[in-house]
Simulated scan of single mutants.
Amino acid sequence: MKWNPEAFAALAARHGGEVLQHQQPLRSARQGAAHFGIAMAQTAPTLIIDADGDIFACILSGARDGVDWDKLAQTLGRSQARLADRRRVREITGCDAGAVPLLGLDLPCAMDLLLLAHDFVYGGAGDPLRTLKISPHALAELNRVSLWYE
């Protein structure tokens, strides 16, 4: 499914989300947390994962110090997991890695349980100059999350 910014913004708004614009790209969870004055644990990057040839969206808390790839593969029920390369991310999502949206990808989705501790989380909105602020519960529902990373 290719990226549609208007449909994304409308979907987010219907579920209490807000697309926030900023002047400079936020290239890391640390930059995002500093920019919005939030805890690292509220940042929620969407990673596109290749797990034994199957593609997943994985939304992790910025509070984690990197990805435990063995644990993620186990969560996904696969023998191995890795980041999809930038070309493949663009091909699958219509967006660049680092700006992958939190919603609307129509991919199987795993989400970090740590995110549920917050009223709002912040992550990709399909454009490096936009960030989505949304309830993690709405995020889980909209993405039909069935796999939880602990």
Results as ranks from 00 to 15, higher is better:
residue 101 P to S: 07
residue 132 L to G: 03
residue 13 A to Q: 14
residue 89 V to W: 11
residue 105 L to C: 10
residue 77 G to Y: 01
residue 45 P to C: 12
residue 5 P to F: 03
residue 75 T to C: 15
residue 149 Y to C: 01
residue 104 G to C: 05
residue 11 L to Y: 00
residue 143 N to W: 10
residue 52 D to C: 10
residue 128 P to Q: 12
residue 120 F to N: 11
residue 118 H to V: 09
residue 119 D to N: 14
residue 136 P to T: 00
residue 77 G to H: 02
residue 29 A to G: 15
residue 23 Q to F: 07
residue 61 S to P: 09
residue 37 G to V: 05
residue 40 M to D: 13
residue 15 H to M: 06
residue 127 D to Y: 07
residue 82 R to P: 01
residue 105 L to A: 07
residue 81 A to Q: 05
residue 139 L to W: 04
residue 138 A to I: 01
residue 64 R to L: 10
residue 125 A to C: 00
residue 80 Q to D: 12
residue 26 L to N: 00
residue 128 P to F: 04
residue 36 F to A: 07
residue 147 L to A: 12
residue 97 A to I: 13
residue 61 S to A: 11
residue 39 A to E: 15
residue 2 K to V: 09
residue 55 I to P: 02
residue 135 S to K: 05
residue 145 V to G: 10
residue 112 D to R: 04
residue 25 P to F: 01
residue 73 A to P: 03
residue 10 A to P: 00
residue 38 I to V: 15
residue 114 L to N: 13
residue 5 P to Q: 01
residue 47 L to V: 09
residue 112 D to F: 03
residue 139 L to A: 04
residue 11 L to A: 03
residue 13 A to F: 02
residue 49 I to R: 07
residue 109 C to N: 05
residue 45 P to F: 14
residue 113 L to M: 05
residue 138 A to G: 00
residue 65 D to G: 10
residue 87 R to I: 08
residue 48 I to V: 15
residue 82 R to E: 14
residue 90 R to D: 04
residue 52 D to W: 09
residue 55 I to Y: 14
residue 113 L to C: 06
residue 7 A to H: 03
residue 4 N to E: 07
residue 99 A to F: 07
residue 70 D to Y: 03
residue 9 A to H: 03
residue 32 G to C: 14
residue 44 A to Y: 03
residue 29 A to E: 13
residue 141 E to A: 15
residue 4 N to D: 15
residue 18 E to M: 04
residue 73 A to L: 05
residue 123 G to N: 05
residue 126 G to W: 00
residue 87 R to V: 13
residue 44 A to T: 11
residue 121 V to T: 06
residue 13 A to Y: 01
residue 25 P to Q: 06
residue 33 A to M: 12
residue 123 G to K: 06
residue 49 I to D: 06
residue 26 L to P: 00
residue 25 P to N: 04
residue 135 S to Y: 05
residue 32 G to N: 09
residue 144 R to H: 14
residue 126 G to R: 00
residue 57 A to K: 07
residue 51 A to I: 08
residue 37 G to H: 05
residue 118 H to F: 15
residue 13 A to T: 03
residue 15 H to W: 09
residue 4 N to Y: 00
residue 68 D to F: 10
